[in-house]
Design a protein around this nucleic acid. Sequence first.
DNA 1: ACTGCGACTTAGGAGTGGGCGT
DNA 2: ACGCCCACTCCTAAGTCGCAGT
Length: 687
Amino acid sequence: MKHKDGSTDKYKDKHKEKRKEEKMKSLDGKVKKEKENGFASPPYVKSEPEEDFYHSPKHEKSLKRERDDDYDSEFKPKKIKTENDKKAKKRKQDNEDIKSKKTKNKKGEVADGKKKAKKEPEEKWKWWEEERYTDGVKWRFLEHKGPVFAPPYEPLPSNVKFYYDGKHMKLSPEAEEVATFFAKMLDHEYTTKDIFRKNFFKDWRKEMTSEEKGKITDLKKCNFTEMSEYFKAQSEARKAMTKEDKLKIKEENERILQEYGFCIMDNHRERIANFRIEPPGLFRGRGDHPKMGMLKRRIRPQDIIVNCSKDSKYPEPPPGTKWKEVRHDNKVTWLVSWTENIQGSIKYIMLNPSSRIKGEKDWQKYETARRLKKCVDRIRAQYREDWKSKEMRIRQRAVALYFIDKLALRAGNEKEEGETADTVGCCSLRVEHIKLYPENDGQEYVVEFDFLGKDSIRYYNKVPVEKRVFKNLQLFMENKEPDDDLFDRLNTSILNKHLQELMDGLTAKVFRTYNASITLQQQLKELTNSEENIPAKILSYNRANRAVAILCNHQRAPPKTFEKSMQNLQTKIDAKRDQLSDAKRELKSAKADAKVRKDEKSKKAVETKKKAVQRIEEQLMKLEVQATDREENKQIALGTSKLNYLDPRISVAWCKKWGIPVEKIYNKTQREKFAWAIDMADEDFEF
DNA sequence: ACTGCGACTTAGGAGTGGGCGT
DNA sequence: ACGCCCACTCCTAAGTCGCAGT
């Protein structure tokens, strides 16, 4: 069987060889990377605003985009129509008006002549009621102020000393800065790890003067404690600042947010997600990362590519600097990008999840998952059929897909060995990651999974599977070493190509979305009890959410203060119980009293006491629910699924159905992200 | 076919500030 | 009024997936 289609080489042999090779050679291949990430500054693209028409989109006042217009007819001809400069300027003026008006409104400090709309942050734009772009165009107009750079390095005061081998040593500013990065992490366990220290020291030495390099040859002889103490003191001082000073900082942050935190995209002022450039520091990979401790270098204007409309006001680089490039690519959504020096990957500044451009995509994601719902039975039948295929590659594909569907595993792209932590997903599972038990705890055909997934989070699960799957797995594992690929004839590209044929837009990750959302919907139906009060219903919601988080393996480290906070809560519950029995006793005696006296006053007293008892009972119940919820949530993170996998319309519909305020389920940020769902879903929405 | 890159989503942890109980 | 704690925000790493180039 294995040789039936043996005409083609095994896909993964090459990678595997690589892995083994690199395992021995340890960290190599850096030379190439460094070249790519070098500081060579490419030609500066001259900005030429004065020759350009300010081609602001029209109809600013209506705050409505016109997307139904044909791109060509709206855009290009305008340009050709040779608007005169004045007109162009006028448009631009309008554009600025929008910006400043909105800014003021937000702050609620408008003081102009005409009656202001005040308070209400002027009608929220319902982008979901408008037509979408279809042709890969992401926007027509984009203007922003560029990124906010990390503050420059401030040298330490001279009384904060660094010691090498017990002797004070004044470091050059460059070396000192990198030393402070290490000092700041001193009481983190990272700094005890060999790889971290090795990487750090190597990169640190690159920043040293040749004199320093000559002296400082052993990290163990470095004493950073004064630096470390200094930073601790600084953070204490920050905490102890006066209210006024804190307010000042807050105001300054707000100012920066207003200036840099928004862009104009197609007539609308939209929030930018990460407008601050990542500051330099030591790289902290997750899990067993071979590059931990490396120096993440400072990003400068000449590293930055700016993306905006030709007809916008370009962001200014800081005085005396230039951007690497200014481009006008409206087929992408990012405003700013740069190449990071650790992995050589590109980083982006993009919009907030509340923005149209992110929201549309999110919505579309759930629509794809709903389409999967319609054909998932067919697909399941097909992959079950494929377990019997004559071709190995098809069987592997079918078993992998079964795991992805049943266990919500990630696709599992190949990764470059030695560049990142050793983690896997479905297609990259290795023989060592599963164990087969023909029988286990009274169940037949049990597969035990144990591997590190994304972010080096452990996936551990024992699942009974169909006999056919089990037999296939045995076959796949025959004559293989533990570190051989389980699915040697499969990779994500093959799998996704297959999925694409089964349904338009179908990829491996759609199964995660689909299974997460459908599970929430089912669980909500099952767990919600119409008799119960709101806190109990919310507990049910959280339990449904939790079922999804468990399915998707969304874990968290138990909070450091977990035990304590659990105890605190228990103390509160005990106190409340005492309070309740007191209140009950008082009620009893009031009743007795009223029976004797039979006057209005004592009757009233009874009523009051009754109310008190009721109130306390409710409070107690709420606390108990809270305790249950917290206990069950110890190692489970609900946020990720809520934010990325659960169709918000399911939750909104549930809220509407049971009269639960949506605020109980979604906080402010989440409500902003899911505004489209909150607006459009009614109580009988079905995923 | 295969690789590497670019763009975008998904992820957990650190940091913090505001609400709460005392 | 005060201190504590936890919910939320920020941060940025680590995935997915498609595509271009060879």
